[in-house]
């Protein structure tokens, strides 16, 4: 393997466990600060929308959750790929750890979207391409979680899950481009347009702050879950035993 031992030692479970233990408190402080800034600017400083009034503010939760539901899936597929090709234990733990987090963000995006959709569109749910593709994403996560718990051997489960995750990756571009390819009820992209984003700066700033805060929630949850997965998977190894003896 390229760069051989250096990379292998960075990806070694004990090393990752120690490193993540050091960064977690700092990430938590940063995350709390970003939430305070994002919520204050989003709920107090940002002006109401010219069409939707105050109802649009749900996007400060909805949009980051939807972005992260897709980002988490890319992490799942990427970790699955590494687990499948290089049989890296850390990648297997990351994949097992990220799936429930991704499912939670997907559910959050669907629920906040429905809450907004009822007063604004006039319907909780419509079968348009964007909403349907996001629902399929939720089912992909649930299928992955189900497959993981159905196979007793964790290393076999990781490989089987990785195949499912990689097959499902085709859904991610469909979610993103659905509003461009088909006439959907869901509006087109706002922030990722190539020319200037069609959102006023006073609303874009809180959206980006909240997205950063949500991203940190995602990273913190992923680190915590991956650490727990590693401890469970490596419970008979020397480094976990040493940790247990060191604990009071």
């Amino acid at each position: 393997m390229f760069a051989g031992n250096a990379l292998a030692s960075l990806l070694a479970p004990p090393r990752f466990y120690r490193f993540s233990g050091v960064v977690l408190p700092w990430l938590s402080v940063l995350c709390a600060a970003l939430f305070a800034l994002g919520l204050y600017s989003g709920l107090v400083l940002a002006p109401p929308d010219y069409q939707q009034g105050d109802s649009y503010r749900i996007m400060f939760v909805h949009v980051p959750a939807a972005w992260l539901s897709m980002f988490a899936y890319l992490i799942l597929a990427g970790a699955g790929f590494m687990a499948l090709v290089w049989r890296i234990k850390l990648a297997e733990a990351v994949a097992a750890g990220v799936a429930p987090i991704g499912a939670s963000f997907t559910l959050l995006a669907l629920v906040t979207g429905a809450l907004w959709g009822k007063p604004m569109w006039g319907a909780w749910w419509v079968w348009d391409a964007r909403l349907t593709a996001e629902l399929i994403l939720l089912f992909l996560y649930l299928g992955y979680i189900g497959l993981q718990s159905a196979i007793a051997d964790t290393r076999q489960a990781a490989r089987a899950g990785a195949v499912l995750a990689l097959v499902g990756v085709v859904n991610i571009p469909i979610i993103h481009y659905s509003v461009i390819w088909w006439s959907t009820l869901h509006q087109g992209p706002t922030v990722s347009k190539l020319d200037a984003p069609s959102i006023h700066a006073s609303m874009l700033a809180p959206l980006l702050l909240m997205s950063a805060a949500f991203l940190l929630v995602f990273v913190i949850a992923l680190l915590l879950r991956t650490r727990a997965e590693l401890l469970a998977r490596e419970r008979r190894s020397a480094w976990v035993q040493a940790l247990l003896e060191g604990a009071p």
């Binding site: 929308d49 069409q51 649009y56 569109w121 006039g122 347009k193 069609s198 959102i199």
Partner: peptide, 30 residues
């Protein structure tokens, strides 16, 4: 059934107002 499809533009009412004076065919502010 009637569903409202909204566009991807988000802006404060004042901005929409000044846009409206600039071009007459913008939507009516809330």
């Amino acid at each position: 059934e009637v569903l409202a499809k909204h566009d991807e533009n988000y802006m404060p009412p004042e901005v929409a107002g000044s846009l409206k004076t600039a071009q007459s065919n913008t939507p009516r502010p809330a």
